[in-house]
Amino acid sequence: MKNFIITFLILMVVWVLLNNTFQPDILLVGAVIAVFLSLFMCKRCELFQDMNFTPKGIFYTIWFLGVFMVELIKSNLDVTKRVLNPALPIKPGIVEVKTKLKSKFARMLLANSITLTPGTLTVDVVDDSFFIHWIDVKDEDIKSASKEIVEKFEKYLEVIYG
């Protein structure tokens, strides 16, 4: 039921964004289509099962977006610095990090955030270990690498997705 409602809401938002209007007849058409689509697609999906719909969860979602944007800009400054430096200062390697997150959606968000933040790229995901290509390896140890890469996002995602 929760999945159905969230899928419906997402589809309605997409419909409104595409049509860029709030006229009631268009909204009605969109609602009918969205109900059918979410019934058809969401028979047994569990994508949004663990989402917390509390004020705290919503607040943390917005905060997470803010942190993410800041990291994205930082990562681009980092990339620019490395690319334009004639010496090309890189020290790449693949490190292993651990995550506590169980929800699939949260893990996808975590992997995408890691890919878009300074110097890291998710190469593979096996159970609770993420294998990360790091452009400038500071620490090979699992614990300290996790602290460096994962924790800044994990603490928000943990609240939002339980």
Binding site: C45, K104, F105, R107, M108, N112, T122, D124, V125
Partner: peptide, 10 residues
């Protein structure tokens, strides 16, 4: 990869 599957579901 699990990430790709989840993204596809979305």
């Amino acid at each position: 990869s699990e990430i790709f599957k989840t993204a596809a579901k979305l």
